[in-house]
């Protein structure tokens, strides 16, 4: 299996720059979550990654070599706007798309049988797509992307509009693809899902990649984590009187703290016990939603301790 490198790609539509020097990589066996607000450039980047669109500049590398139509055949793509022939039966449609991805007729037919069963749409094989529910159409669309066991799976908003059971099915399929060694790149606004599924997350805004790394690394960025401290019977303004605290803000029953330079948890603990009984102290790592908000729309800083 190979790795996908997006290398400084740029794309403009007339005067509007949709993608601006975007770079990131997706390793084989990795699930990469692509998050960003609407219009951030996710769809354009994904279209360029699978060869549907050409970048104005920059390179798409697969296994270190520039992308060709032939290598793109080995990719599986699910566009944001689902695309199928409405009047074609599920079986014919999937077999046709399998053949377009380089399978023989017999292989495509077998793959169609396997994936319609795997995605629980086997009873709809002889029906036309427009007679299916939206959820089942989505399953057909996913099957179309998976038929040829792609080396790279690019899915634009694959979870949108799915019921919880379908979300679980889809998540399982993505994990299986990654276990098989495929590189998986998908976008979603459902950040909890991305957090749960992805090994690596990329956050984009205004066509630029703001940050991409493993979720743990992103959370460990200096300043991203806060210390949560819950003091019982502490008097008001206790946090302002502790030198180890640089900034703070109320959070639930306790307080979120940012440590002063060169101060650590022990310094804080030693000083805090003088103001009350320490009920809880723990590092509070930000969720992806918080990270996303901090990067895209930075929240006001914690109140600085006086």
């Amino acid at each position: 299996m190979n790795r996908l490198d997006i290398d400084s790609i740029t794309k403009s539509y007339g005067p509007n720059r949709a993608i601006d020097s975007m770079s990131f990589s997706v390793e084989p066996g990795q699930i990469f979550g692509f998050v960003g607000a609407n219009g951030a450039g996710k769809t354009t980047t994904m279209r360029i990654a699978v060869g549907v669109l050409d970048a104005d500049s920059g390179r798409i590398l697969w296994d270190g070599r520039p992308l060709t139509q032939q290598t793109a055949e080995r990719f599986g793509y699910m566009p944001e706007e689902r695309g199928l022939y409405p009047k074609m039966t599920v079986a014919k449609q999937l077999t046709y798309l399998g053949c377009l991805h380089g399978l023989s007729n017999a292989e495509a037919r077998q793959a169609m049988l396997t994936w319609t069963e795997r995605l629980r749409i086997d009873e709809h094989r002889s029906k036309t797509v427009d007679s299916l529910s939206l959820g089942n159409q989505q399953r057909v669309q996913l099957a179309a992307a998976l038929l040829h066991e792609p080396d790279l799976l690019v899915l634009d908003e694959p979870f949108s509009g799915l019921d919880p059971i379908a979300v679980d099915d889809m998540s399982e399929v993505l994990r299986e693809a990654a276990v098989r060694g495929a590189a998986v790149l998908f976008s979603s606004h459902q950040l909890e899902l991305v957090e749960r599924l992805c090994d690596v997350v990329g956050i984009v805004q205004g066509g630029k990649m703001l940050a991409w790394d493993t979720l743990d690394t992103l959370r460990d960025v200096p300043g991203a984590s806060r210390l949560y401290l819950e003091l019982e019977d502490a008097r008001e303004n206790w946090a302002d009187q502790i030198p180890a605290i640089k900034a703070h803000q109320p959070h639930g029953r306790g307080t979120l703290l940012e440590l002063a330079p060169r101060a650590d948890e022990n310094d804080l603990l030693l000083e805090a016990v003088q103001f009350g009984r320490v009920r809880e102290m723990a590092w509070h790592k930000p969720t992806l939603t918080q990270l996303f908000r901090d990067l895209v729309e930075p929240a006001p800083a914690l109140e600085t301790a006086s």
């Binding site: 279209r47 699978v50 060869g51 549907v52 139509q69 793109a72 055949e73 990719f75 793509y77 566009p79 706007e81 689902r82 695309g83 199928l84 022939y85 409405p86 798309l97 377009l100 991805h101 179309a144």
Partner: peptide, 13 residues
């Protein structure tokens, strides 16, 4: 209009 073209263009010029 049915957006199938985007899927087709991922395999064909």
């Amino acid at each position: 209009s049915t957006r199938i073209v985007e899927v087709l263009l991922s395999t064909l010029t």
